[in-house]
């Protein structure tokens, strides 16, 4: 009896139900100086899901991501990564996080692009382990993936904002993460490179079964690429298939007068998936 093609779909579905969710947020509320920046957020992101997170400026997107990776304290509610409470979570090698464009690294920071990417491997080394030659090879491969291998030996301080952003992406990829969290990763990157980058994310998701959370201002890109969309404006207004987002008037509610900007006509071609 063949276990191949016929069994594939049910197995796939079974796997999705058996693997713990990559991220489980429940009842998360966060206040800054009396004002709620996150209001009762509950969100489950399954293993292998490609989630696009959108919302207007100041809607709490970055705060939510920072809370997921343990950089913000949790006052109310809970966050679990792979079934473990984030405060007790230790397997950080499984989580690649690319923050919003690096505040200028000291221009004289004494490290090459490759040196910075290698540091990502520390997440797989426990408390005392060191990174070595094999890790450098792996880091170089990650730099190649993001098209930065020609710049491996340049000082990070000498790189442009977009180049530095790609180094940080390479560093996250060098961790061999199961969950990749990206906060506006293509800021400062030109549009052709952006297309290549989004194709890379597609590949990582389909081939490596990576779970991806992508924050972007670029709604058309999210609509075309992501499998699910979450729309945040302090509270969660939508979580589901991209198609559903345009129907319920969510965009109008959340973005208001910014709506035209978000759905900018010159970018409508992106609404259709790339060939």
């Amino acid at each position: 009896m063949s276990v191949g093609a016929a069994a594939e779909l049910p197995l796939h579905a079974l796997e999705a139900t058996l693997r713990p969710a990559a991220v489980r947020v429940s009842g998360l509320t966060r206040c800054y100086g009396g004002e709620r920046v996150l209001d009762d957020i509950s969100l489950t992101i399954n293993a292998g899901e490609y989630l696009g997170l959108i919302g207007p400026n100041g809607s709490g997107k970055s705060t939510l991501l920072r809370t997921l990776v343990g950089l913000e304290p949790i006052e109310e509610g809970s966050v679990q990564l792979f079934g473990t409470d984030v405060a007790r979570f230790r397997q950080w090698g499984r989580v690649g996080y690319v923050p919003q464009i690096q505040k200028m690294v000291r221009h004289d920071f004494p490290a090459t692009a490759l040196d910075v990417v290698v540091l990502g491997r520390l997440s797989r080394k426990g408390r005392l382990g060191r990174v070595g030659a094999a890790d450098r090879t792996q880091a170089m491969a990650a730099l190649t993936t993001v098209g930065m291998h020609h710049h491996a030996q340049r000082r990070v301080g000498d790189l442009s904002g977009g180049e530095r952003q790609r180094v940080m992406i390479a560093r996250a990829l060098a961790q061999e993460p199961e969950l990749l969290i990206l906060d506006e990763p293509t800021t400062g990157v030109d549009s052709t490179s952006q297309d290549h980058f989004f194709s890379l994310l597609d590949r990582l998701q389909s081939q490596e079964r990576m779970t991806i959370i992508l924050v972007s201002h670029d709604l058309p890109v999210i609509m075309a690429r992501a499998h699910t969309v979450a729309c945040l404006s302090r509270s969660l207004h939508y979580h589901g298939k991209p198609e559903g987002l345009l129907e319920g008037g969510v965009i109008e509610t959340v973005f208001g007068h910014e709506r035209g900007l978000v759905l900018g006509s010159h970018r409508h071609e992106h609404l259709h998936p790339h060939p």
């Binding site: 230790r90 920071f109 540091l119």
Partner: peptide
């Protein structure tokens, strides 16, 4: 012993923390 971890912290303390560095 901690040379590489101190390097990561010096580069960016927050992203170092997400690498699991104390």
């Amino acid at each position: 012993v901690f040379y590489q971890r101190y390097t990561a912290i010096a580069f960016d303390p927050e992203s170092a923390q997400v690498l699991g560095i104390p």
